[in-house]
């Protein structure tokens, strides 16, 4: 029997996880292809910039990238939690309703069109990916609605079919594209972490944080939803409203994550499950802790991606799957007997 979750326990756990996140980010920022000494990096800050490579690597390349990984990891993990409860399906992840193929389609269109502008510091690829992701989710949602109000199966099937259809369009465009353009797209589809402007990180991080807070707001209702539609309605919860909010917010933060860093798989699937397996399915705890642990996981995975084949680097999606998969299986075997929801 699991003990009840008290507010105090929740705050302590979130604080602990937050401290771990900060420590991990700090340690990872010291690891990289080039060894950087903090002392050298902050000697003579504010002087002529081009003379201190330690400073530039640490502050302008590595730090933004680590912050980006944390933002994206948190967004994907939280949105994974929400999709799993909304669709009542343990296989659900942030990409299940077509976000990935929609964003992929946006990307390849941006690459093929050869646009060369920036919108608030974002490249056409990021803008098109964001638009493609949200557009596709809206389309799936719309089709799902036509099959009946919040008919989970209808929604899922619509997602699968739209995914397949857009994938086919992506394949077609790939087959007519020039090989060098395909290269750019493929790296993006495997997850592409680069350093970003601090302003972009600030706004992106703000959006994701706001999204997670909004989801946290409705986490008690999400708990009730996980018992089933009818039960939730009987208790007097406006399930349609909660579902719409949760769905829109989760899709929004996923689209932000995707436009920042391409498609990074696995985080949104295994982190929520891992947290649920170890700490239980209460969403008030599951959401914030998944966010923080998702951030830790992606920061570590990205650091590995940076150093394993240095001086080259791996796509981070490869690392998340290779590191995350076995780790998750161990958790699954060790904890699944204790947790009732799997039965």
């Amino acid at each position: 029997m699991k003990e009840l979750l008290t507010p105090r326990k929740l705050v302590v756990r979130i604080a602990l996880a937050g401290i771990v996140l900060i420590v991990v980010m700090f340690v990872c920022s010291l690891i990289g292809a080039e060894s950087v000494s903090l002392k050298a990096a902050f000697r003579g800050v504010g002087e002529h910039p081009a003379v201190n490579p330690d400073y530039e690597i640490f502050v302008k390349v590595r730090l933004p990238r680590i912050i980006l990984a944390a933002i994206v990891g948190a967004a994907l993990a939280c949105s994974g939690v929400v999709f799993q409860v909304l669709l009542r399906n343990p296989l659900a992840d942030p990409y299940i309703l077509g976000i990935s193929s929609g964003a992929g389609l946006g990307t390849i269109i941006a690459v093929l069109s050869g646009f060369n502008w920036t919108l608030w510091g974002r490249s056409p690829i990021a803008v098109f990916a964001f638009a493609g992701a949200l557009g596709t989710v809206w389309l799936v949602w719309f089709i799902g609605r036509l099959t009946g109000k919040f008919h989970v199966t209808g929604l899922l099937l619509a997602g699968v079919v739209v995914n397949a259809f857009f994938s086919a369009v992506i394949m077609f465009l790939t087959s007519v594209a020039q090989s060098q353009q395909i290269h750019a797209t493929i790296f993006w589809l495997m997850g592409n972490m680069t350093e970003e402007d601090f302003f972009v990180l600030w706004i992106g991080g703000g959006c994701v944080l706001a999204g997670i807070l909004a989801l946290f707001n409705i986490s008690p209702q999400l708990n009730v939803l996980s018992f089933g539609e009818d039960d939730a309605r009987n208790i007097g919860i406006n399930t349609a409203r909660i579902r719409t909010i949760a769905f829109a917010v989760a899709a929004f933060i996923t689209a932000i994550a995707v436009s920042l860093s391409g498609l990074i798989g696995f985080v949104g699937l295994i982190v929520p499950h891992a947290v649920r397996l170890v700490l239980g399915p209460d969403h008030r705890q599951l959401l914030p802790l998944s966010g923080i642990i998702g951030a830790i996981f992606l920061v570590v995975a990205d650091t590995l991606a940076r150093i394993i084949v240095a001086p080259a680097q791996l796509p981070v999606g490869v690392v998340t799957a290779i590191v995350g998969g076995p780790f998750f299986l161990v958790l699954l075997v060790r904890h699944s007997r204790k947790v009732s929801w799997l039965k």
């Binding site: 292809a33 080039e34 490579p53 690597i57 290269h183 790296f187 001086p311 080259a312 680097q313």
Partner: peptide, 15 residues
């Protein structure tokens, strides 16, 4: 070495 043609390493370039 500063990475590969397709996967350049910006840290190595700056270093």
């Amino acid at each position: 070495k500063v990475g590969t043609f397709w996967q350049p390493n910006i840290e190595a370039v700056i270093a």
